Every structure is written in structure tokens, then in C-alpha cells.
Simulated assay, not measured.
Amino acid sequence: MGFLVQLVAFILLPLLASMRAEDTINSSQPCDFRAIFNFGDSNSDTGCMAAAFYPEVSPYGQTFFHEPVGRASDGRLIIDFIAQHLRFPLLSAYINSIGTSYRHGANFAAGSSTIRRQNRTVFEGGTPFTFEIQIEQFNQFKQRTGKFFNQARKNSFRRHFPRPEDFAKAVYTFDIGQNDIAAAINRVGTEDSHAVISDIVEHFAEQVEYLHKLGARTFWIHNSGPIGCLPVAMPVHNNATNHTQEAGYLDQNGCINYQNDMAREFNKKLKNFVLKLRAKFLDASFIYVDMFSAKYELISNANKEGFVEPSEICCGYHKDGYHLYCGNKAMINGKEVFAGSCGDPSKYISWDGVHYTEAANRWIANRIINGSFSDPPLSLTHSCRAVPI
């Protein structure tokens, strides 16, 4: 009898687990998200660095907003398309106090941000708004808005802030780590890259666990994109010939393999961390979004998808070893050069050599929002359903 019970259990338990997983993934009931809280770097900064230091200049923002609006693109970012898909207003930067409303969330992302603290000033490409600081800003935002919401008697004041119960019903999005990888690439040969990447992921893990402690329950986590495919780093824009003939230095798209390999290592360790979180916090949903694969698919099929070669840059001057970034002027070889934009940004993947155009961001957003690159394969609107088995 005991053997029969064990046999039945052996047959049925995997079937039941499979059925539960299928029900979880295919649930037709969308999540009732009330807000978005985003953390990241310039890939999702909607105005933090512009409000804190120097605003973007033309031609940034030219495609959609028709003026600079603090985004490192000609138009909308992936986080903008995420907000619009959830039928929320575009997210305001947390420190942008002019004309903002935080009723449906806030954006803590800041250009140049890293997960770990870096020994760089703002003028050296650094930022005080590390991932740890962004989490503390969120903590302060949650505490203060809760206090003001409960004290306010006028609905006209309350309508600018999320309700206290909305924080548990929000989706928390993350797109950060690429600047940490870039810093590690710049120090290759002087430190143990594997140990550094492990440390970066551990720092990320600590802050995400702290967010869970603060009440976050749905986590939408982007991995790092193919940093070796950023045009500004490609040999074609740097007069670099030392390594280009070496076997395996460049891939079939002209991307730098060892840089992408570091991003892949980060992504692998990040995914392992996400799996551990699912097992540890059974009351939360953790979605791992493979941005690397989504972006690399676009780069690999650029011409087929209606774009020019992925190495081409829409805005900026990158010739003969000179790098003049989008919107700037300089004297080069005795001649004043303005780093303006191309005629049609919608044909380009890269806006300024580092960041993507609105057209590319839309292409990528359309692929990740439906869950095609997610683990588990849940769409954004169902991302609260990733209950651990």
C-alpha cells in the first residue's frame, strides 16, 4: 500500500506542479497595477540629471517631444513605452519639482548611475545617484507621501501622490548595471573582473531585498544590454586597428566580443540571483527580462527591420579619432563642428553612439512587454503572477 501511494505521488506531483505553472503563466486576469517605480541609469532617466545639473540641449528630444526633456534620446525611452502600455502618464523624475505629478509612480533613474559606488565626479561621467541612493530616495518618498496623504484634507493635494496602499500594487522596474560593466571593462587587467561582477550583483541583491522589505512585490528586472555593440566603442569609430584582425575580437555584427562576454557573465549571475529571490520570497513576483537578447536581435537584423547598419550613429561627430557628442560644438582641425543629428532618426538604432533612438526603443519595448524575452514568459500586464512553484 505504501509503495502504491508513493507511486501515485511520483506520477501526480510533477503533473500538478506543471498545471500550476501553466495556470500561473496563462492566467487571463491582468494585474491591477496602480503605479510604476523605476530605478536605473541613462537608459531610463526621464529628467533626473537634467534637473540636478545641466539640462539636455537640442537636438535631444526632437522626434516626439520636439524639445529636450531630460532623456538621452531623440524621443521616448523604453520606460516611457512601458508606462504608456499600462495606460499611465509618462514618469516624472523624482527630483524634478516643476510641473510633476507622482500619482502613478516616480522615476529614480539617473544618467551615469551605477550599482556600486564609483570614484568619479559628475564631470568625469559619474553621478551621486547610485542604486543605493535611488532606493533611499524611494524610501523617503514612500514615507513622506504617506504622511502628507494622511494629513491632507484636500483631494486636490492628495491627487498628486500615490495612496499608501498603491505601493504594494505597483510594478518596480530596474535597468541598471551597464555603467558598472563599462567601469570593469576599463580596468581589465588591473583587477579580477569575475570577482567584480559577482560583487556588483551582490550589491544589487542587497538593495532589491531592501525594497521587498519596504513593501515592493512585483519586480521587473532588465539584464544588461550588449555593451560591446555600442557604436561609440566600435573600432570603426576609433581608428582602432590593433585588435580588429585578431580572431574572435569582433563578432559578425562588428561588436566587441570580450565586452559582450562580460555583460553575459553579469546577466548569468543576475539571473541566478533572481531565481534565488523567487525561492526566498514566496509572496513576491520576480521577472527576469533578457534585454541583451532583445537588443542583440535588433542589431543582428537591423537592415531587415528597416534600420541602417547598427554601427552608424545618428547624432554626433565621430571621425578620425575625434568624439564630439550630440549637441556639442568644438574646433576640429581649425574648423568649428556642430554635432547635429541625422536627417531621419527613425532609420537608426543608435541615437548618440551610446543610447538608442525612439524607433529602436519602441522596437525593443514591443518585444519585451509581451513576455517574449521574460523568465517566466509573462507579459508586463501579467507580471504579478510569477508565483514560485
Rank of each mutant, 00 (worst) to 15 (best):
E206W: 08
T218M: 04
A52G: 01
I299K: 10
F3G: 11
L230G: 10
P128Y: 07
R362F: 11
F338S: 10
K269E: 05
A294K: 13
E191D: 04
A72P: 02
N303M: 13
L270E: 04
E22N: 12
A247Q: 14
L298P: 01
N242E: 14
Q178I: 11
V196D: 04
N26C: 12
W363H: 05
A359T: 06
V171H: 10
N257E: 08
G126D: 12
K147E: 15
T145H: 00
E312M: 15
T381G: 00
L12V: 13
R103Y: 09
Y54F: 10
S198N: 13
F81L: 12
L214C: 06
Y94C: 06
F266R: 10
T63K: 01
V69F: 02
K347C: 05
S18T: 08
H160F: 15
S18Q: 09
H222F: 15
S92R: 08
N242S: 14
T244F: 01
Y210F: 13
E309W: 13
G99W: 00
C255D: 08
R362E: 02
G371Y: 03
W351T: 05
S341R: 06
I256Y: 05
S193F: 07
Y258N: 04
T357K: 07
P162Y: 02
I227N: 10
G75L: 03
Y249D: 12
F33D: 09
L13D: 14
I200V: 14
P231G: 06
L298K: 12
N333I: 12
G321K: 14
Y325G: 00
I98P: 04
K268E: 03
A83P: 09
R117F: 12
H194Q: 14
S42I: 08
S28R: 15
M1I: 15
A330T: 06
A302R: 11
V308E: 09
A247D: 11
L275P: 00
N257T: 15
K280A: 00
S101R: 07
R163E: 10
L324Q: 13
T100V: 11
G340S: 13
A302M: 06
K268C: 07
F338N: 03
I98W: 14
P55F: 08
A21R: 15
T241R: 13
Y249G: 03
I389A: 08
F281L: 13
I95E: 07
N38M: 02
R116Y: 05
D290M: 00
A52R: 00
T24W: 04
S58G: 06
S350K: 04
F286K: 03
H237I: 01
L7C: 07
Y60C: 05
A51D: 02
H243F: 15
Y210Q: 07
T244K: 05
E265A: 03
N38K: 09
C314Y: 12
E305T: 11
D74R: 06
Q140M: 03
V171N: 07
F65A: 09
L12H: 01
M19N: 09
D352P: 09
F148W: 14
Q259A: 10
E309I: 09
Q151H: 12
R153C: 06
I197N: 07
